[in-house]
Write a protein that binds this DNA or RNA. Structure first.
Lengths: 205, 205
DNA sequence: CCGGCACGTTGATTCAGGTTAAGATTTCAG
DNA sequence: CTGAAATCTTAACCTGAATCAACGTGCCGG
């Protein structure tokens, strides 16, 4: 947990997205970043509250969910080397609709809206990075939406596990059910139904 | 239909997004744009085919849908002053997952992927525009997803009609049902149920 | 004017998943 | 070690929407 250089991961990530970014631009960027740590259970964003920071996860785990009639509907899980933030709230400057809660002790690198806008003015590459990141978020969103429309629950489960294989070890099953859009009971039923058909269990705990 | 200046609408749109864009930058941009027209029923993007252009709708109407088990699931409708394109395919350079079909004769202004990348190199403002547009698409997507998660069918219907009031006059009801994620039969029933409760019909044809 | 087609409605049946409830199992603090 | 809380499973019953099918109604071309 004691990184030699606390922005290392973010820097690597940026240099992969935009290899042409100069060391100078990075130095400026670095200056307005800050590191924050959170304990399991804390929130990085909450419904009704403006989300004023984008956070890049150094280590830890988070979930994003909506509150629907008092019930939590999980939209995504997020670990190391990803952004966590209600980017919708952040961009639109309006109260968040989603909740972003940490499922483990977590360290993030973050930047405030104000500072980011400043960065866009000062560092030209920042706009390219900002564009690429927005595009990537858009692509991820597309993937999610498409899967919800086209895939069966089982297919979505398989995809989830193959994309984030560490998930079953780190989050309870009822959260995965919530992500799939069904109740824990239904999920349990589906699992047992599938495992009865094949002698070798497909869905692992 | 005979616009004095065929890029007028796009220019206005851009200048609203980025007022600081110079006339010079616009001149360069303008040079790589082209106008295309389509007849009702034609496709701007098809599943399995790379979508190599972003198109800005000058006039006309389009729908975006996925094919699920041979059935069409409409994701959005799109008219004047919006982009139509499988932006996912366009950005990722992979075959499209969605179909974009014109529901009326349509005129678009469009730009190819290659030309856009070139523009990003040559005109610095283009990156800002690109970022803002990607951000907006992301926000729209969020709205859609959130509505699907949180709102009832009736609420989503009301939202749709208040956002695109011209819709019922221009598309058949079964397409609206598809957008809402239910069958035409179910939609019909919901409508009649609602209209029975209130003496004055709420859902118009 | 007629026949066909696209669109909308209505009814009967079916089914996946929700709900409720009760146990079984795991986890963890004290 | 022990008991409470959290999690997972199973079963019985219920519900909303899909499916299948039949039937209007309006529109268009010949």
């Amino acid at each position: 947990m004691t990184d030699v250089y606390k922005f290392e991961k973010l820097k690597t990530y940026f240099s992969r997205l935009l290899p042409t970014m100069t060391e100078e631009s990075w130095k400026i960027t670095e200056n307005i970043l800050s590191v924050r740590t959170f304990k399991k259970g804390e929130f990085i964003a909450r419904g009704g509250v403006l989300c004023d920071h984008v956070s890049f996860l150094n280590y830890g785990l988070a979930r994003v969910y909506y509150l629907v009639d008092g019930k939590e509907k999980i939209v995504s899980f997020c670990n190391e080397l990803n952004y966590i933030c209600d980017y919708e709230s952040f961009l639109s400057r309006r109260p968040a609709h989603s909740y972003v809660q940490l499922l483990e002790d977590t360290e993030v690198v973050d930047i405030s809206y104000k500072d980011l806008q400043m960065l866009y003015q000062v560092v030209p590459e920042a706009n390219i990075l900002g564009r690429i990141i927005a595009e990537q978020l858009f692509l991820e969103m597309c993937n999610g939406t498409r899967a919800e429309v086209k895939d069966t629950i089982l297919e979505r489960y398989s995809k989830l596990i193959s994309e984030q294989p560490w998930l079953p070890q780190r989050v309870p099953q009822y959260m995965i059910a919530s992500y799939l859009g069904i109740t824990p009971e239904a999920f349990s039923r589906i699992k047992s139904r599938v495992n009865k058909q094949k002698e070798v269990p497909v869905m692992v705990d």
